[in-house]
Amino acid sequence: MGDFKKKVVIIDYNLGNLFSVKQACDTVGMNAIISSDKKEIEEADALILPGVGAFIEAMTNLENLKLVEPIKNAVGNGKPLFGICLGLQLLFTKSEEFGSGEGLNLIDGVIRKFPAIYNERKIKVPQIAWNKIYSSKQHWGNSPLSEIEENEFMYFVHSYYVDPTEESCVMTLSNYEGLEYCSGISKNNIFATQFHPEKSAEKGISIYRNWAIINNLL
């Protein structure tokens, strides 16, 4: 009705394939742009924090681009934020990758590496696989996962996983070679997945659509 669509900014900090995230946003009808510009991020109605790669390098890039404060402020002001893969991990307090690196500290917890050997068995790291997600204590009904069934397969690529201090933010769990880990979180206006919904076929795209609907971005 003449209203402009709300603006979603996909945060570009020079890591990862943003094209597929943008493609998913376009497919469901969001007005999304890719940007590393502080001003654009401050003016955005909602943020997507994607990313593949190294935690420390990601934080360094965010700091150099002066994006740490704008992201924290946006979340503090109640704007929706959708973190994907490394973008989930960056929300946490710190990572044990290459010593210890500080994250955005929006959620209490630590990032841990998958062990090379678990239960006396060698496991392949990174996990590059479709894996099931299942619910923790939180219900999915009114979340971006509303069209996702228990034990649906999603696509994962990662060597590290999050270990949240607050159990209440854990939305989905997954199990890799016997090790159960948190694969999705939800806390107030933050929603984040360890898996890549934009690479998880039509079910994954439904997560984008429902995130947009819930946050009134369409």
Partner: peptide, 8 residues
């Protein structure tokens, strides 16, 4: 691997 991440 440094620029794009190992998994890429």
């Amino acid at each position: 691997t440094r620029m794009f991440g190992s998994s890429t």
